[in-house]
Amino acid sequence: MEVVVDFSSQTPIYLQIAEDIRQRIIAGTLRGGDQVMSTTQYATTYRINPATANKGLTMLVEEGLLEKRRGIGMFIADDAHERLTSVRRAEYRDAILSPAISSGLLLGLTPDQLIDLVTQLVKDLP
């Protein structure tokens, strides 16, 4: 799976690089111990400033998702998947699920009706 950098996007490139790696960790295509491209590889592949690529990778190091191995490169942390899914689940609960449940309750749906709706939606997914 190749990184997708959209130069027409309003999102800065370094954020796109970081988010792409996060998504690949969540999807399981990058696992603990896997090596990621170097800043030089990002720079030459996408014709971007190495500092831009480094900024995205540094964010992931600060989040504990990547580990620097001096002279070798950057690697996915062993607990990156668990760490990231934990954060994303909390974000999902707070930003998406909680407001949706509140809206349903305001519409007069009971908790049991909400559970039934969610169960049906899950069954209908491909």
Rank of each mutant, 00 (worst) to 15 (best):
I48N: 05
M59N: 08
N54G: 15
Y42C: 00
G33L: 14
L66H: 05
T40G: 11
D34T: 06
D34Q: 13
L30V: 12
S38E: 02
T44E: 14
R69Y: 11
T45K: 13
V36E: 09
V61S: 04
V36P: 07
G33P: 15
A53L: 06
R69C: 06
K68T: 10
R47L: 02
L57A: 05
T40I: 13
L66E: 06
A43T: 02
L60R: 07
L65I: 03
T58V: 04
Q41Y: 03
A51I: 05
L30N: 10
T45G: 00
L30M: 12
I48T: 03
Q41S: 10
T52Q: 05
Y42L: 00
E67Q: 15
A43E: 04
G64T: 07
Y42P: 00
R31Y: 06
A43S: 15
N54H: 10
L66R: 10
T45I: 00
T45V: 04
L30I: 10
E62Q: 14
E67D: 15
V61G: 04
E63P: 01
L57D: 02
T44P: 02
T58D: 09
M37N: 05
A51T: 06
L66W: 06
E63I: 01
V36M: 13
S38P: 04
L65M: 04
T44R: 14
N54V: 01
G33I: 11
L66C: 11
G32P: 12
L66N: 08
L57W: 01
R47N: 13
A53P: 01
P50T: 07
T39M: 12
P50C: 09
R47F: 02
D34S: 15
G64P: 08
N49V: 11
M37L: 11
T44N: 13
V61P: 06
T52H: 02
A51G: 07
L60Q: 04
L30W: 09
T40A: 15
M37E: 09
N49E: 10
E62W: 03
V61C: 12
T40H: 13
V36F: 13
A51M: 10
A53C: 03
K55C: 02
K68S: 13
M37F: 06
V36D: 06
V36W: 08
Y42N: 00
T39N: 14
A53V: 02
N54K: 13
A53D: 03
A51R: 11
L65D: 02
L57V: 04
T52S: 08
Q35D: 09
V36L: 13
Q35K: 15
Q35T: 03
A43H: 06
L60F: 07
E62A: 12
I48A: 01
L57I: 09
A43R: 05
T58W: 08
M59D: 10
Y46P: 01
E62R: 14
E67M: 14
E67P: 07
G32I: 02
S38G: 12
E67Y: 09
E63F: 14
S38V: 00
E63W: 11
G56N: 02
P50L: 11
T58Y: 11
P50N: 05
A53I: 02
E67F: 10
Y46V: 00
Y42D: 00
Q41M: 07
T44L: 07
E62S: 08
K55A: 12
L30K: 11
K68N: 13
D34K: 15
M37Q: 11
M37A: 14
E63T: 03
Q35E: 14
